[in-house]
Design a protein around this nucleic acid. Structure first.
Lengths: 105, 105
DNA sequence: CGGTTATGTAACCGCAAGGGTACGCACCAA
DNA sequence: TTGGTGCGTACCCTTGCGGTTACATAACCG
């Protein structure tokens, strides 16, 4: 969880996830899509891998990276503690609006 | 969105959110609950405020901080792009298991 | 008014994060 | 086996973040 949120903080890493969301990709392909050089991408991929967000399988000399979306469940669960609150707020807002309407007529 | 995920990366800041989840608190109370000194907390609160995650109202000399859970909707929306994927994976896993069971009988 | 309380800001410091270059290693192809 | 390709790691350097101490500010209280 800690590692996942940490990993998500970097925009480059989120871009990687976004690409892998559509299709698996090799490290080189990912590097081309990013504004940074390959070694940098390699390290980003390491962080993502250690956070469980991606996995890689070797394919000849290449390494194909795949998204592991299950890792994001942790974030979803964490959010759960707050979801009720913002829902509550929105509900309150709605009733507020409803009350406003009622008062206005 | 960027600012929100950035803000969530730090454990101290997540602790602040966790406290404010239960009740509003003054800067001093939050500082006591954290392992760091007040000025550090003050800056954390600044980050959280600029990310829209908390808001503060002055109350005499104190500043009372309140959670703004709506800011987390951004994260929820961002997750939405991936939710279908991990659901799909889990479903696939379940059918896999189901198939396994079926094969086994 | 003068002191205390509560807080934010400024200045400084140490360290880890993130970028680049150089290098090493595995794997394919000729 | 030798050259080329694709990646990762080691190393270095710079920047930004998070922490502290010292100070400024604003509001209450005697």
């Amino acid at each position: 969880m800690d590692a996942v949120l940490q990993a998500l903080a970097d925009p480059s890493r989120r871009t990687v996830l976004e690409i892998l969301r559509d299709h698996p990709a090799t490290a080189g392909e990912l590097a081309e899509a990013l504004p940074i050089a390959r070694p940098g991408v390699s390290r980003h991929l390491r962080v993502l891998r250690e956070a469980g967000l991606v996995e890689s399988r070797p394919e000849a000399q290449r390494r194909v990276y795949t998204l592991r979306p299950e890792a994001l469940v942790e974030v979803d669960d964490w959010l759960e503690q707050y979801r009720a609150l913002w829902r509550g707020r929105l509900d309150a807002l709605h009733t507020e609006i409803a009350r406003g309407k009622k008062d206005r007529r």
